[in-house]
Amino acid sequence: MSWQIITQSLPIFLKAFELTLWLSAVGIICSIIVGILCSLVQYFKVPVLHQIITAYVELARNTPLLIQLFFLYYAFPVIGLKMSAQVCGIIGLVFLGGAYMAEGFTGGFAGVNSSQIDDGKALGMNNLQLARYVVFPQGFALSMPALTANVIFLIKETSIFSVIAIPELTNTALDLIGMYYRSNEYLLVLVIAYAIILIPVILLLNYLERKVRYGTFGD
């Protein structure tokens, strides 16, 4: 184990670290938005859209991200749709993440007590108002554990971007190992880099989970 090798590689890793962070952040935020929209459609069983989204969720959850990325990066250009590797990566991550988030939120929304829905309806609310004031705030709190799991999962899934040549952390480590044959050092840096991203994320999400847990609003 050589410290010199590690310190020399740090500037390269720092760039990769920033890229992983950025791709994860964009991917996760978009996944959450897609997930919320899809789950509201599922919750209110909006005709036609409901079936389309069910098909999407099943397709996205039952195919590996690896294959999805291959399609986006290698197969789509054949039909004239050429995108940069990073755009493909984000689209792939959101395609997968949106489906997982949708399932998580759908579960949370389903957990909202039916008596709460009766209350909202009896007060004359339409579906949009029900969603905004009743289903969403309570269901979101209930889906926090699923959200946490999905965020962690998606951050780790960015490592698969290495197959379409995005210079994120895993790809960078593999490249360096290939060039210099110092797997111990580079893998150690790689693991630590992921830990630096994931540990604060987990702590933050656990804190939020406690904060919004059902019934403790307003603390």
Binding site: D119, A122, P137, F217
Partner: peptide, 15 residues
């Protein structure tokens, strides 16, 4: 037509 239920539910996220 106002209605009050057995479950005495208020919305927990509002005062």
């Amino acid at each position: 037509i106002g209605m009050v239920f057995q479950s005495y539910d208020l919305f927990p996220n509002f005062t």
